[in-house]
Design a protein around this nucleic acid. Sequence first.
DNA 1: CTTGGAATGTCAACATGGCTGACATAAACT
DNA 2: AGTTTATGTCAGCCATGTTGACATTCCAAG
Lengths: 178, 178
Amino acid sequence: MAEGGSNGRSTGRSSQGFGGESLLFLTDEQLRQGIEAMFFAYRGFTADPDRILAEMSYGRAHHRAIHFINRAPGTTVNNLLTILGVTKQSLNRVLRTLISDGLVESRVGVSDKRERHLHLTENGKALEAKLSDAQRARMRAAYKDAGPEAVQGFKKVLEAMMDADMRRAYVTLRETGS
Amino acid sequence: MAEGGSNGRSTGRSSQGFGGESLLFLTDEQLRQGIEAMFFAYRGFTADPDRILAEMSYGRAHHRAIHFINRAPGTTVNNLLTILGVTKQSLNRVLRTLISDGLVESRVGVSDKRERHLHLTENGKALEAKLSDAQRARMRAAYKDAGPEAVQGFKKVLEAMMDADMRRAYVTLRETGS
DNA sequence: CTTGGAATGTCAACATGGCTGACATAAACT
DNA sequence: AGTTTATGTCAGCCATGTTGACATTCCAAG
């Protein structure tokens, strides 16, 4: 990309010449750095929970489900699969193991009996806390390293990177939580 | 986590009381927001290339391989799997399809005949450019939205989030590239 | 009230891409 | 030369994504 990137140079700047404001910081090289930073950072981001999960033959999919069920107790399968961005069939397998392992409880809806409302059991909450603690520790260290200003920018760029519906989901969760 | 997070409150602040500096910004709630931001943003980050790849029955693994081969032409299988953080067997399957599809060329090493040096063919470069363009467009838009200050912070936090060896790899690539 | 379609969730079968194990070849070190 | 180490390939397993078929429930039209 740096040298072999065919038309890499052609999109090298988002504005030619002086362009008025500070748009000349968007070189392809800097964008590529951001791409690689996302890739490497995401590995670190998931590394600690992954290690814990591997010990109990669970995977990232289980972590995600547990996280968001804890986040919004009583959520339905349908809600959850929208948030997670997978098919209901894929989610269902993960939920099945979590339910049969006694980490998640599935309650038939009262107003609508087609729905299943999901809750963590005590064991489920314990695992959630363990996973979250590990992930938060890494995040806390990174935040501390980078400083509050950087954290603001970090979140701002990530938000801008989301698809519109995910940004909506993210904001909704944020408002619900805090 | 917000309410059921067992010991969530106990780690709610990284420093009690006034503590001297601005360390009180690290509440669990804010850390959780960062975690969810990473999750949702990563989906957006991979969404555009994923769509392109799906059309040609490739996956994210192919994209990653192509990206880093383009980034460091002539790299060996061993180098590549260190960067990618997967096993050689896993990488091998992806490389096999890319080679047989004529996107990647594998040349036996001259000084060490055990090694295979990897290069993109013209077709490989074309696909790389197509994928990169899509991903850079998203990144460019996010950068523009968030502004240069935010981008600085974004990279700073991501770097702090990486494992030490990945940070080294990242920095090396960065220096090589620019 | 009944009936037909839409919504929700479950089960089955398949594909991708992780993984470990076994192995071939080349290099390196006694 | 002979053992050990490094590199890469092949085979098979598992987690988790996918689509398709289906049961249950709800709702709206007749």
